[in-house]
Design a protein around this nucleic acid. Structure first.
Lengths: 301, 301
DNA sequence: TGGTTGATATACAAATTTGTATGGCCGATC
DNA sequence: GATCGGCCATACAAATTTGTATATCAACCA
């Protein structure tokens, strides 16, 4: 039935298989993820290569190695994936009342430490609500519909987005009273160097920005390195040493701020949502609840 | 194989069928467009409704009437369509050299009157280049990848876009010398009212903006109404009466401008491209050629 | 070095999807 | 008011897609 001469617009399902193979790195892996079998996945890739008239992978016994072509096309497939997921979510929200799935993208710290009570209250009030949380695995593009609602550190520019300013969340150096009683409270960057400093493992753009303005937070000085903010807070609470965290959370857990005059990082915080979702009752309710809840949190600190 | 209890992520192909049914308004029509048969299309819709647990259409003997749910989900399907098409185009551009398909969105007038020589020259220089032209059928969103390159009347804001200012294209009232010899040249809006005025049929946002600043271009005064700019120009050139068109084109066709002091609409013009395409050789070549060509056109007027 | 693991490729059978043919329904038109 | 055209629904047959089983190869580890 397929015309062998001219390239036909490929079956959209092939794109999903293509993406799975890229993510898993092998036909077998993709087959497991898709609940298909390895031969079918292999045939899908063959079909897609034939349709696009391009080699997408070089086969190897350890898996499939994507060609440059495959890497170039990946972003499109990711977009398709995000859009289909968004469509499914939108479908669950149809009908009367506050119902269906809303996907939220937040930082690990806000997600773990701040959001849960708000989510619990939302769910208690609207039993048909389903919530998905994305702990900032890098992709959090509202325009691409990776999430419906996102907490952002900068003012969203696109006018396709609805945005509300939450407030300024302050970040500082903290330790347990216990730890400070044993080791003393550092008063300067030099003294801090002799403490068990808790910090980042790999440098993110955000960290580089902080470093450029504050210096003295070099990677070599860290006594415990972890990329997870939540892990860092846990270590600080366990009395490992001095760690960076939001002052509101520090207060909640009885941590004491040190060198407040020398290190204070104010983090402007915004809540954003895709403008198309303004009229989805469920999204609207969640958005409004998060604005209120997060403002309370930001103002309390 | 499909779990009958929990809704499964639907086969992506179902979305394509869904979109075709929305566009065609019937199962049979969609089947024709997709090169499938009416029963399969019907089954696809059934399957999608089952997967999403939503009624998408109410069946009727004259076709399918989309439910509100279907209308709400349509935009997502359109996005999928745009993205798959963009993927296919990107695939054709892979490899060495300037090759593959580039899709351009322009106004009808620029497309028909200005672009063709530039396109011809591009094609002559790069025989492997394929060009697609979209005459502004409303959707021309570069972020959604409906097109690769677009001519815009306003400065593109999104920083995901590459944009170049082309120049200012002036629009004025014109007629053939012949016509003016027979009817005289109007000197005022009142006089113009007695002429065979050529203008729009339905009001677009652009027209409303012009009207709000210039008045006197009411729909009732038109002696010939057509939404197509190209049709309007053709009528003006045929000596029907006085019409609105770009002064550069008017000059080319020997038309004479009237009431230049009272009606002159400067139209800022930009060329824009999705930033991701900056490194696609073919897109880059077309973009640069259009910048040069359109600037020549704008400056000549 | 030999066994184990996990990968792709291929042959064949099962299952699913698709197409064909038909019937019935509504509306437009002469 | 009868006919024609276009549409959807359903039954049955054909074709395609998928899964199962197996062979083969490379890498890793004891």
């Amino acid at each position: 039935m397929a015309d062998p001469i001219s390239p036909i617009q490929p079956d959209w399902t092939l794109y999903r298989t293509f993406l799975a193979v890229l993510r898993e790195g092998s036909l077998s892996g993709a087959a497991r993820q898709l609940a298909l079998t390895q031969p079918t996945v292999g045939r899908h890739i063959e079909a897609l290569e034939a349709a696009l008239q391009i080699a997408l992978f070089s086969r190897s016994p350890s898996g499939l190695v994507p060609t440059e072509a495959a890497l170039a096309l990946r972003q499109y497939a990711e977009e398709l994936d995000a859009t289909t997921a968004a469509l499914s979510r939108a479908a669950t929200r149809l009908g009367e009342g506050v119902r269906g799935t809303v996907r939220i993208s937040v930082s690990e710290m806000i997600g773990v430490e701040v959001l849960p009570p708000m989510l619990a209250q939302l769910r208690a009030q609207w039993p048909e609500l389903v919530l998905e949380i994305m702990l900032n695995n890098r992709v959090e593009d509202l325009l691409r519909r990776d999430a419906d609602i996102a907490v952002r550190g900068v003012r969203p520019q696109q006018d396709a987005l609805v945005a509300q300013f939450i407030g300024t969340i302050n970040i500082g150096l903290h330790a347990t009273p216990d730890y400070l009683a044993r080791h003393g409270a550092p008063q300067s960057w030099d003294e801090l160097g002799r403490h068990g400093l808790i910090g980042f493992d790999s440098e993110t753009p955000f960290i580089r920005e902080v470093q450029s303005r504050i210096g003295g937070l070099r990677r070599e000085r860290m006594a415990l390195r972890a990329d997870s903010d939540v892990m860092q807070l846990a270590a600080t609470r366990a009395g490992f040493g001095v760690g960076v965290c939001q002052v509101g959370l520090a207060r909640r857990y009885g941590l004491v701020q040190v060198m407040a005059d020398q290190f204070n990082w104010p983090m402007d915080t915004w809540l954003a949502m895709h403008g198309d979702l303004r009229n989805h009752r469920a999204c609207r309710v969640v958005f409004d609840a998060l604005v209120t809840g997060l403002r309370d949190y930001a103002n309390a600190a």
